[in-house]
Design a protein around this nucleic acid. Structure first.
Lengths: 303, 303
DNA sequence: CAAGGTGTTCCATTTAGTGGAACTCAATTT
DNA sequence: AAATTGAGTTCCACTAAATGGAACACCTTG
């Protein structure tokens, strides 16, 4: 076979069929080693060979990332696979309901994704434990409350409570943001083992979203130290201009590691006084959730 | 190789590798023929060979359907595949972030599902066109408003606007309910070609959720006729006791076919007078959304 | 410490995914 | 109207990759 320049695949496929390091299924994000699972978080091509599944998901990712129904050839161009192959993969995705085609041969994410995610979400234990606490925090502060979990180099938001929900209702759930410029992100980073936090810190792109966005690993690490001191992280308009937040981390024992929660508000509504007031509430809420997840799992914890 | 009684697989695999009927990728749910894609909606094993992908998704489905983290063997029992095979499939799912394992070797749906679904949802064109209309309908009625789409034998809810969102916030988005006992479901069925509606009607299980649940295909078809007359469907406590709703269908031209929307409320708050009042609003809202999706696609519609 | 169960790894076998090329069908162009 | 391009689909020999039986760890339990 002619190898051409199929860089992605060539780089991807390892010798025969060995998994990350020996084939053992690693507990997800063990929060100490740089997890094998972070791969798909980044924009680079997945470095681990998951065979057919990986290919199919690459296609699915392209379709999901497109901001409109996307044509066959566009997908082809972004993936550098042979036409025949891609076509069959798409057939399969369509047959499985993960993707939808309409008459104009344009592809859109399918409803099955929604169904799967809805079940996943509603059964997520951290989320369900946290929900009432988030609600209480929202009532106490009157501001928007977020719950997020650490995922590679991102926060993925699991839940959100806001008053003026109106049009942008579910906007955040399932969304992902960088760790280095969000309150929840920094709170979670600070909770990681030092080495792990440093590893991740070294891998961010440090896109300057606003004038106050942290611009380098060293600045970030310095701030993490402060966060460790009092258990609170702040977003000072670092991600979106005019938006500030107070955040704290939650450790939950079910192996997936670190989560975080925050109260977010426009800067004009949340001055130093309010921040001080909310800080205690946020810290307390994080503690409550952590206690409850601990309790749920029972005292089999110290073994 | 010894074939054993691997019924699922045996029944699944067709001769060599032919797709549903010749291999052409069919436009999803063409709302006339019984679509190939309904398969995964039902509980029976997927009758189409999607090879590895299909197998992996079966496993994912099992994990997502479980109401708690599930162990390896439990999955194995539900799937009837060799241990080695299942193990490798799970490895792949984990490596791709679709599934998460914790220390106790229990499997949970992964965050990637949420991310994918969130992107799918936020970019869904029907949903985004409909959102402001749903909002308006909610303001006008003060009651909960749903948007759902037809998917095989189910309604999948795409959006929801309710006032007392509190704890059960996103509960419905992505959820699926049967067609025959929901307002949206019946409205959509009535909008299908007669033959198609009859086909589907013959395939429901007709579980008696409440005393008023329609109990047979003939009863359903009769009611569909009435719904076609005035374009409105009603749920008279047919799915949940004490809950009624008024629904109408929306045809949207992007190939996926039929959708529906409804106003839902407790029966005591929505008597005959209110129903009459809301009926007009519901009908009008459906019309508005339909017009707007038409307009969006431009007048290339009659060709 | 044997017995049973559960999870993981190995490897020869063969299935099923691959991908180059040929084909079809439109929409353009000459 | 014939010729050209380009997008989507199909075909099929080739081989990579999935398979699955069996052996291996590692608990837990009697």
């Amino acid at each position: 076979m002619t190898v051409k320049n199929r860089s992605a695949n060539a780089a991807t496929r390892r010798s025969k069929r060995d998994l990350p390091s020996g084939g053992n299924i690693p507990a997800t994000a063990p929060s100490s080693a740089v997890s094998a699972l972070e791969s798909w978080t980044e924009t680079t091509t997945n470095p681990y060979p998951t065979g057919t599944l990986g290919k199919a998901l690459e296609a699915l990712d392209v379709i999901a990332s497109a901001d409109r129904p996307i044509r066959f050839t566009e997908i082809l161009n972004q993936l550098d696979q042979p036409r025949g192959t891609l076509h069959r993969q798409l057939s399969n995705l369509v047959a499985e309901g993960l993707v939808t085609v309409d008459q104009n041969q344009t592809y859109t994410p399918g409803l099955r994704l929604l169904k799967l995610a809805a079940r996943a979400w509603s059964r997520n234990s951290l989320r369900s434990v946290a929900a009432p606490h988030l609600m209480a925090l929202h009532e106490a502060t009157g501001e928007t409350v977020h719950l997020g979990v650490l995922n590679g180099l991102e926060v993925v938001y699991l839940d959100k409570v806001e008053s003026r929900q109106s049009v942008r209702m579910h906007s955040q759930v399932g969304n992902a943001s960088p760790l280095y410029c969000t309150g929840v992100g920094k709170a979670m980073l600070a909770r990681l083992p030092l080495q792990d936090a440093a590893d991740r810190a070294s891998r961010f792109a440090y896109v300057q979203h606003t004038p106050t966005t942290l611009a380098s690993a060293s600045l970030l690490l310095e701030e993490l130290e402060a966060i460790r001191q009092d258990g609170l992280a702040f977003d000072r308009e670092e991600h979106e201009p005019g938006i500030v937040c107070v955040a704290a981390s939650v450790l939950y024992p079910e192996g997936e590691g670190v989560a975080g929660l925050s109260v977010t508000a426009p800067a004009f509504r949340m001055g130093p006084d309010k921040i001080a007031e909310f800080s205690a509430l946020v810290r307390q809420t994080a503690q409550n959730i952590e206690d409850e997840t601990d309790a749920r799992l029972g005292p089999r914890h110290q073994e």
